[in-house]
Every structure is written in structure tokens, then in C-alpha cells.
């Protein structure tokens, strides 16, 4: 009995509940005789394309600004970088690389301003961050109409402005997913995507173990201790905001290439929530996070979503009830994760 209790304590209740839910879905997959290999492939791909976005939470939490609800800010920077790479018709892996390179300087500037703002509203980062995200997305709805992009594939057939969704077929649709991809037992392994995620995780891991990363951590976990040791916690918070924004920008490009589209206008509005929910489920708190929390959390969360869709479609074959069901599951998990996130601590 105590052995079980120990195990549950170590695993954490949220991860246990999510694992059980995942198991139930897998049983449904068996009952409805859905194609198992396709579902596993889907889970891997979804987890991979979302992981870098969730990784953006690491520097934010370490630096003490908490969960970065202002993720859409970084996403917008990534989208601009991506659109510029499309404008100049850079295709394939080179296109992704170009998108990354262009978005980084934008993200540095945006993250710096965001960090300065967060320093002025200490204690309400969560609310302010959320609204920074919302405001920037809304502002960009005008910008998408007015920005001087001339590539006809990006705009509407008639009139001004960029399309709502831009299909990446012509440029780099699934370029990372399909890089060195192979099949085992009918399951597609997106080697390029997995390597990309591993690379970003490694870079962040190296950073948090460096002198700069340790200062960031000290500034976040005890600002007075940091000052006593000659570290300016306001500066490390700005650094945390910049890094988080950069990773979000890189992350949306990874997401878009795997998804196949750049989604503009109001699409980025709520993109912070799945990322926050994933790391919470993975075992992070408002003050503590490890890379393993990101990997485990994203995999659990996105696998459930990937499996819920076909299962729902099998249970409710009529109309778009399946899509409704998927949205309910997705928001239900986010709500569950956030409900456990009280008083700044994840219980």
C-alpha cells in the first residue's frame, strides 16, 4: 500500500490522472478497431510540433516572471519571420532556417519591451501577460492587412492583405517532419522533428546550467538573495522574457511546418494556454520547472488530443460532433491544469 502511495506521490496526481485518461482512450482505440499505427504517428508528430512552444515556459519561470501567458507576442515575431521567408520564396529546410533567423532579432526587441513592462507590474505578470498577448494579436489583425507583402500566394485573390491561413505546400510543408523520416510497424518516425526538439531542449538545458542560467534562476527564486550576490534581478527577468519570446518565435515555425499552415489574425490569441497546460501537467509550478516537465507534459497532453479526435469520430460519426468533442477535451485538460495551479503553486 505504502509502495503505491510512494509511486503516486512521485508521479504526481495530475500525471496519474492524465495517464489513466490516455490509457482509457487507447482501450477505446482497440474497441473501435481504429488504425493503431496511424494514431501513434499522429501522437508523436503533434507532441513534436508543440514541444518548442512549451519549452518557452522554461526561461520565463526560471527568471521569476512565471508562466509566460504573453506567448502570442513571440508567436507573432515567428509569424513575421516566417512570412518574410515566404515572401522571398525560400523553400525547404533553408526556408525554415531563414524564418528562424529573421524572427530572432524581432523577438529580442519585443521580449525586451515585454520584460520591461513586466518589471513594472510585479505580482500581476499572469494577467498582464495574457492581455499583452491579446492586444498584440489584435493590433496585428490590422497589420496583416497593411504590411507590404507582395507575393501573390500570400494575399487574397482580390483586395489587400494577407490570407487567414497560408498553406505551406509550396515552401516547407513538413520539411522537418519528413527529414530522415522512416517507418517501423506502420508508425512514421519524424526523425528531423525529434532531432529539432532534442536540439532546442539541449540548448535550453545547457543554458540553465551555465553561469548566466544560474543567475537567472537566483533572480527568479529569491530576488533579494540575487541582489546580495551582485545580480540585478530586474535585468535577469528581462533576459528571461527575451529568451521566452525567442523560443516562442522559433516554436511557432516548427509548429507551422508540421501543421502545414501559417495561421494569422486571431489564431495565435489562445496559443499560450495549451503550452502552459502542458508544462503544468508535466509537473512544473509557477516557480519551478525542468526540461523533463516540458517533454513529459507535452507528450501526455498532445497524445491525448491526437487520440481523442479519431475516437470521438468513431463514437459520434454524425456531423462535426467529433470536432466539438476534441475542443471539449482540449479545454477540459487546460481547465484542469489551471485549476491545480493555485496560489502560484501546482499541487
Amino acid at each position: 500500500m505504502s509502495g503505491i502511495k510512494d509511486f503516486v506521490n512521485r508521479l504526481g496526481m495530475p500525471r496519474l490522472i492524465m495517464s489513466i485518461f490516455l490509457l482509457l482512450l487507447l482501450i477505446m482505440v482497440a474497441i473501435y478497431q481504429l488504425p493503431f499505427s496511424m494514431i501513434v504517428s499522429q501522437s508523436i508528430t503533434r507532441s513534436g510540433i508543440n514541444m518548442v512552444l512549451a519549452l518557452a515556459m522554461v526561461p520565463a519561470i526560471k527568471s521569476g516572471i512565471g508562466m509566460n501567458f504573453g506567448l502570442p507576442l513571440g508567436i507573432i515575431c515567428g509569424l513575421i519571420g516566417g512570412l518574410i521567408s515566404l515572401e522571398y520564396n525560400i523553400t525547404g529546410l533553408l526556408g525554415i532556417l531563414a524564418a528562424w533567423l529573421i524572427s530572432v532579432p524581432l523577438a529580442i526587441v519585443a521580449g525586451w519591451a515585454y520584460g520591461l513592462l513586466l518589471n513594472k507590474v510585479k505580482g500581476s505578470e499572469l494577467m498582464v501577460g495574457t492581455y499583452v498577448g491579446f492586444s498584440v494579436v489584435s493590433l496585428m489583425c490590422i497589420a496583416w492587412l497593411k504590411l507590404p507583402f507582395n507575393n501573390p500566394s500570400l494575399g487574397w485573390a482580390m483586395g489587400d492583405g494577407l490570407r487567414v491561413t497560408i498553406t505551406l505546400d509550396e515552401w516547407y510543408d513538413k520539411a522537418l517532419n519528413e527529414l530522415w523520416a522512416f517507418e517501423v510497424f506502420g508508425v512514421t518516425i519524424p526523425t528531423g522533428l525529434i532531432l529539432t526538439c532534442a536540439l532546442f531542449c539541449l540548448l535550453v538545458w545547457i543554458y540553465i546550467r551555465s553561469r548566466a542560467g544560474m543567475s537567472l534562476m537566483a533572480g527568479g527564486s529569491n530576488p533579494n538573495f540575487a541582489r546580495y550576490n551582485g545580480i540585478n534581478p530586474n535585468r535577469t527577468r528581462v533576459v528571461g522574457a527575451i529568451l521566452s519570446t525567442i523560443i516562442a518565435a522559433l516554436g511557432i515555425i516548427v509548429y507551422a511546418q508540421g501543421f502545414g499552415f501559417y495561421q494569422l489574425y486571431s489564431a495565435p490569441m489562445t496559443m499560450a494556454f495549451p503550452a502552459v497546460a502542458a508544462v503544468l501537467i508535466g509537473g512544473a509550478s509557477a516557480t519551478k520547472i525542468k526540461i523533463s516537465n516540458v517533454v513529459i507534459g507535452t507528450t501526455l497532453f498532445q497524445s491525448i488530443l491526437a487520440i481523442a479526435s479519431p475516437v470521438a469520430a468513431a463514437i459520434f460519426p454524425e456531423g462535426n460532433l467529433a470536432e466539438v468533442f476534441r475542443v471539449i477535451v482540449s479545454n477540459g485538460i487546460i481547465l484542469y491544469a489551471l485549476s491545480k495551479f493555485e496560489g502560484g503553486r501546482f499541487k
Binding site: R211, M214, S215, M217, A218, S221, N222, F225, Y228, N229, G230, I231, T287, K288
Partner: peptide, 18 residues
């Protein structure tokens, strides 16, 4: 004086490291 959530090792070596 301390980073309460961090290990004894990190707390002891922090100032010297930074």
C-alpha cells in the same frame, strides 16, 4: 541569505561561482 528550494551545494557555492 538562501535559495530555499535549491540544494545545499548550490547555496554554498553560489557566491563564489557568480
Amino acid at each position: 541569505g538562501l535559495l530555499l528550494e535549491e540544494s545545499v551545494i548550490i547555496n554554498i557555492t553560489f557566491t563564489d561561482m557568480i
